[in-house]
Design a protein around this nucleic acid. Structure first.
Length: 272
DNA sequence: CCGGACGCCTGTCGGC
DNA sequence: TGCCGACAGGCGTCCG
């Protein structure tokens, strides 16, 4: 499910409820995630205050006690804060219980997500160490993208989704940003010129900003910390619209496959 | 270093 | 109605 806008929406919703609160208990109902929830996690969390909740790439970083609780939502993970937690349902994995009785619950049917402990400094953690710049980092600009794609023969869409080059851009927003920048997804990255890459950078930022403003995208099961869906899927130009008319020129949106992921584009607006 | 394929899981949907 | 394969928002790992 979640790309950067959904993770960021979750971060904001969760932060409003848990920053400054003390963790009084941790209940692990099902530790089977991408990696097992560490058995000693409770020791690292219980009795400590959540000092900050940050985001790096699609990882949520809870600054707690002597380190960081690292949470990734994978494809179907969600975090919700409950004042009065309802009965657990299938695929609920973990509850963090706070001193005001609020509960932060992690739910993840496909179990591609993760809940791990990282000692300081968190940036040195193996999962974070090789990540490229954030899309809103000034270091991510047209010149940078131009430089790192000169020797890349693979498709520009794959480069955009390569977390070593830039983080946070998943399949939906890669398709949308490339449409807005009028670049075909399958274009070899090295063939895209500097000015077009500068355009791409600004379109990546634009589409992510707009998606965050709409609370992200809800395709099937994404909800934010309060259980609310996002609405940005209503603003898609191409994602999931194969066979439907382009919102700009009316020609039919095409579908192809890059790697194992679906690509969508307009054959007229996005020149080869 | 680069690029592609695979695997991890469950749920849903379309076609027969 | 039932079954079966394809596919889904991610990404670490392995191999050439």
């Amino acid at each position: 499910m979640p790309e950067l806008p959904e993770v960021e929406t979750t971060r904001r919703g969760v932060a409003a409820r848990v920053i400054g609160r003390r963790i009084v208990d941790l209940q692990v109902y099902d530790p089977r995630l991408r990696w097992p929830v560490p058995t000693d996690l409770k020791d690292r969390l219980q009795g400590y205050i959540v000092e900050a909740l940050e985001r790096r790439s699609k990882y949520l970083l809870f600054r707690i006690g002597l380190g960081t609780l690292l949470v990734h939502l994978g494809m179907t993970g969600s975090l919700r804060v409950y004042s009065r937690p309802p009965a657990r349902v299938r695929h609920d994995h973990v509850d963090l219980v706070f001193d005001d009785d609020a509960v932060l619950r992690y739910h993840d049917p496909r179990r591609f997500g993760a809940m791990l402990w990282a000692p300081s400094p968190v940036d040195a953690h193996p999962l974070l160490r090789s990540l490229g710049p954030e899309p809103f980092d000034p270091a991510f600009d047209g010149d940078y993208l131009w430089r790192v794609t000169r020797s890349r023969t693979a498709a520009i869409k794959l480069a955009l989704m390569d977390s070593r080059l830039v983080v946070g851009v998943g399949n939906i927003y890669a398709n949308e940003a490339l449409f807005r920048a009028a670049i075909r997804p399958a274009t070899p990255a090295w063939r895209v010129g500097r000015s077009r890459l500068t355009r791409l950078v600004s379109e990546v930022r634009a589409v992510l900003s707009e998606a965050i403003a709409k609370g992200g995208s809800t395709l099937r099961d994404y909800v934010d910390a309060g259980g609310e869906p996002g609405y940005f899927q209503l603003n898609y130009y191409v994602y999931g619209r194969a066979g439907e008319p382009c919102r700009i020129c009316g020609s039919l949106i095409r579908h192809s496959r890059l790697g194992a992921r679906s690509s969508f584009y307009c054959g007229r607006c996005q020149r080869p």
